[in-house]
Amino acid sequence: MLVTWKYRPRGTFLDSLDPRSRWITSFLILFAMVPIWHPYVMVGYFCLSMTQFFLSRLTWQETKRVWFFIIFLIVIVIGLNAIITGRGGPGEIQRLEPHVLWERSFNILGATWTPNITVEKIGFGITQMFRMMGTAVLFFIIPWTIDPSKYGVTFSGMGIPYRFAFSMDLAFRFVPTLARDFATTVDSQRARGYEVERLEGGLITQIRRVAPLIVPVVMNAIVNGEDITNAMDLRCFGQDKRTWIGKLQYRTRDYFWIGIGVAVFLGALYLNWGLNLENFFVPTWFYGLFGVVP
C-alpha cells in the first residue's frame, strides 16, 4: 500500500492556489533560468524560490532532512565537480583567463592529470549551487503543500492523458513508500545482527554487503507494483474515459500566480537576448576575495 507525503493544509496563499497554477509557474521559472549563467541573475532566481518557500510556511523542523540532503548533494556533486573540472556549463569557464589558486600534477598509470582550482571555477561552482538550490527549493516543497488526493486530477488537468496522470500520482506516492519499506528492512536485518554502519572490505565487498537492504526493498517494490495493477484492473481502470471527483478551478489568484511565472519567463528572455546578460562572468570584487587582480 502506498503512503502519502506529510501534507497538511496550512491556510496559506499557496494552499489556496489551484495545483495546476503551482506546477505551471514553477516550470516557467525553471525554464526561464535554463539558458542563463549570469551569477547575479542566478542569485535573484534563488531568492525567488526562497520567497515561495517562505510563503509555504514550512518549518525548519519539517524540512531539515531535505535541506541537509540537498545541500550535501549539491555541495559534493555539483560544487566539487564544477570546482575541480570546471564542467557543467556550456564552456563559460574556458572563455575566461584562469587565475590559478592551486594546482598539482598526478601521475596515473603513465598519464598526467593536473587538476587546479581557479577563481573562475569557484565563482562558477557557487553560481551552479545557487541554480541547483533555487531549482530544488522550487520543487521540493510540492509534496508538503499540494494535497495528495489532487495529484492525478492536476496532471490530467494539465493535458496529460489520464493513465499517465494516474501513474504519476502513484509514482509520487511511491517515494515515501519506498522510504518506509527501506526503514522496515533495515530494522529486519538489524534484528539479524546486521550492522549498517559497519560495512567492511573493498568496494565490491561493500556493494555485496548492502544487498540485504537493497534486494528486499526492490523485490517488495516489484510485488507491490503487481498488487496495485491487479487492484486497479479489478476496479475497471483503463477505460476510454475517466472521471476525477476532485474538482479544480482557476480563480483570479491563479491567473495572478501564473502571470508571475510568465513575467519571469519573459524577463529571462529579455535578459538573455535583449540585454545579453546570459553569460557567466566573475565580478571584480570576487577576485579581490582571493587577493587576485583580474
Partner: peptide, 9 residues
C-alpha cells in the same frame, strides 16, 4: 518480523 518479504535477499 511479520512480513518475510522485507528481509529475504
Amino acid at each position: 518480523f511479520q512480513n518475510p518479504g522485507q528481509m529475504l535477499f
